[in-house]
Amino acid sequence: MIDTVIFFVSAVIAVGSAVMMISQRNPVLSVLYFIVSLLAQAVLYVQLGALFLGAVLIIVYSGAILVLFLFVIMLLNLRGTEDLGPTGPAVSRASKYLVSVLLLVELVFVIKASFFSAVPVGIVDVAPSEFGSVESVAELLFSNYLYPFELTSILLLAAIVGAVVMAGRLRDTHQEEGETETPTTDVQIKEEV
């Protein structure tokens, strides 16, 4: 009984705040709604008995990635009232509709598949005891999903190297133009406030 109540409350919060997130003009509020949605999702994981996945969801997304989002938003001091500039060429304006339609189709397929799947979806009475535990996740990660796992780490490494190279190039051009070396974040903020 109480499980059902908790499930529906957190499911509504998760979906509702996801909708609020994409309908906000203010980027900081968007991030906040994103966090609320993630917390509600973590509650759902915990209800399934997957404590580990719930904790990792919060640590990785709420604890690290969204702090980074907030940092960038605050660094640029975006408040949702900025003029977004002239709209791009017709192709790039059309692309957003194309991507939206693709995502919608994907969503429909996922929902349809879950209705007809053999595995029960929704409130499960008894979750398998091993489901979502540290051991079972680790076992899958290092057996069935070893190659995707290793490939992801290479992808991340490539991204880090790329970011460093781009930052280095930016600094070189600054020096060639005779500017002072890499202004610290504080200096940039002073100019913008």
Binding site: L51, A55, S62, V67
Partner: peptide, 14 residues
């Protein structure tokens, strides 16, 4: 909790 230490880190990161 059997993931106590992860809980601590999840909460403090908020």
């Amino acid at each position: 909790l059997n993931i106590g230490i992860l809980f601590v880190f999840a909460i403090t990161s908020l």
